[in-house]
Design a protein around this nucleic acid. Structure first.
Lengths: 347, 347
DNA sequence: CTGAAAGCGCTTACAG
DNA sequence: CTGAAAGCGCTTACAG
């Protein structure tokens, strides 16, 4: 393994000069720089990351922690699992990797379940393995975020509903998504739209509800409390049950706006069983377009929330924060867009 | 930030002693050890990972590279995307994380597309950022694996069909999966089973085909070339087209064994369109149980390949390899199991 | 079982 | 623009 000494010797310069070249300093004369780079290439020199870090007090690694809660830790692959929550994080993660391509940073990942009292921090943090951190998806507590801030480590929140005014956050606004879906449903002439909402634990629930209410209001349609259907958990089985109760109570919607692909499919299974055809008799739009949406029969018209783009922008944001620690806090909402497939009837 | 010096001073011992305690050496007297640990806890000391690595010539990080090919680099969320390939890797990845919990290793990830000539190695490797490597999923070339071996870095292959005799590999055998599905179909009285195979680029294709042929043979049923349906790509749209051609040629199977959830859904969409009911008129089993399977209507009976378990075992394997570089090569096939849902008719 | 010393491979003022 | 020197925080023989 060649070291910086080998390079220096062979190039006939001092170690410091090589180091300056390595760090893209402009204190080095063009000719010298070129010579050094030449030698580096020749002997296939790669700086030792540990030595570099020890001197410069950096790690050249960034961390990403996937937030988990106690409930959704399951990894089963069934109708009543919440596995898709993980998929969303994975898509964001891919965006982060893409956004970091071309930089010198490695990416260290960790699954982390936020303890209620927030006394425990992720290992990448306590062990100082990273120069910055992506906090991917909910749930997190304010105590946790404060504790994280106190460490001085730069970090950014990223995920659905991950908006916190005092912290850098790159997020999708579920309210905006529901508004988009509602607009579409109303424009295509639907009169009786219900909201198949996510579980009450998720506090994005209210964002969806408010957007739902507002859209109806603007259209001059009355808001009915019961038409905000609450499922107990974020999976197909739970949505199936919630929607069945709603239907059996005699309600007859002509459209469903669903909190996610899984709930949409839950409702669709019930509709299939009772012989109601989608979209002929009832239209559906799902929020948070995921791979299940395209594969449903009929394929689900969805609100795509650009998960990869969220990751990419989070990368930009963290990089900027590290470069310039005092810059103002950024809150960036990534706008969703409609993906038209086959689950909405155009009248 | 307290250093090892602070600990030594406060505990009234030398730096070396603290270091020995840190590294669980048994050269330290019980009392001394306890004292040092006490102090470490008191002043909240955490060893500097860079310093540690620089001296000990380790990184305390392991790498995982997600192999990508030129074709399946898409990240769209549509019926004709291969996004689920990524999902599979993610499940394995989760297993790896789980398997590494309790160790001191961080996990650095990298997307890597294997160049045809294998001249380029992943950055985590060339930059010596890791002490070992997980190569997750296909495609890889033998040139690439050889180049990797030449670096001396311990690594393990993990994924569907990732079996290479000369390297540590933890894998699912698609042939075994197809055999399992066939057994089930035959036991439930199906007579005309077709194989909806994956694309010809994937060399696991033949493993599936062979298992299919053998199962028929053992049952005394004739093998028909055309009943190995070849789709051009691993997604729903492609499987839809392939299955439609098959059907339109007049073939009337009473069962489908599909290479994955997406192809199964592709065929199901066609069946839905032409009014053939699953499972009443035709049964389906999908290989590689993924989240789409549970959400289909009807829910797909599937061959689950324990992706998380694969990751977990890969972690064990790499850890052991690092501990004991000369140990014999391990090839571990993770046995699949059936998940019974609603897409198979029992006669 | 414990301590003094050298060294891992870089970066960073500092002097010129 | 370049070089000599100190130092980052550990580990590891070595001596006792």
């Amino acid at each position: 393994m060649p070291t910086i000494n080998d390079v220096a010797k062979r190039a006939g310069v001092s170690r410091s000069t090589v180091s300056l070249v390595l760090n893209h300093s402009k204190l080095v004369k063009e000719d010298t720089r070129r010579l050094v780079e030449q030698v580096i290439h020749e002997i296939n020199y790669v700086p030792n990351s540990n030595a570099r870090g020890l001197s410069a007090r950096v790690t050249n690694n960034l961390g990403v922690i996937f937030m988990k809660d106690y409930l959704h830790n399951s990894t089963q692959v069934s109708y009543d699992s919440d596995q898709h929550i993980g998929l969303c994080s994975f898509n964001i993660f891919n965006g982060i990797m893409a956004g970091l391509a071309g930089t010198d940073y490695g990416l260290i990942t960790e699954n982390f379940v936020c303890s209620p009292d927030a006394t425990t921090l992720p290992r990448v943090v306590t062990e100082k393995r990273v120069d910055g951190l992506f906090v991917v998806a909910r749930p997190y507590s304010m105590e946790f975020l404060s504790a994280l801030r106190d460490t001085g480590l730069p970090f950014v929140l990223v995920g659905v509903g991950c908006f916190e005014e005092e912290f850098d956050s790159i997020y999708a606004d579920p309210g905006e998504g529901v508004a988009l879906a509602m607009r579409d449903m109303l424009n295509t002439g639907h009169q009786n739209i219900c909201l198949l909402n996510c579980s009450a634990q998720l506090d994005t629930r209210n964002l969806r509800l408010e957007a739902f209410r507002r859209a109806l209001e603007e259209a001059g349609t009355p808001f009915r409390e019961k038409w905000n259907i609450q499922s107990t958990s974020n999976n197909g089985a739970s949505a199936y049950r919630a929607f069945r109760s709603f239907w059996e109570a005699g309600n007859r919607p002509d459209a469903i706006v669903a909190a996610n692909g899984q709930s949409a499919l839950g409702a669709m299974r019930y509709l299939y069983e009772i012989g109601v055809r989608v979209p002929d008799q009832l239209s559906i739009i799902a929020y948070e377009d995921s791979s299940v949406c395209g594969y449903a029969t009929p394929a689900l018209t969805s609100v795509n929330i650009r998960k990869e783009e969220m990751g990419r922008q989070a990368a930009q944001c963290l990089l900027a924060r590290i470069r310039e620690p005092e810059r103002p806090v950024k809150n960036i909402s990534i706008p969703p867009y409609m993906v038209y497939r086959d689950s909405v009837m155009t009248r």
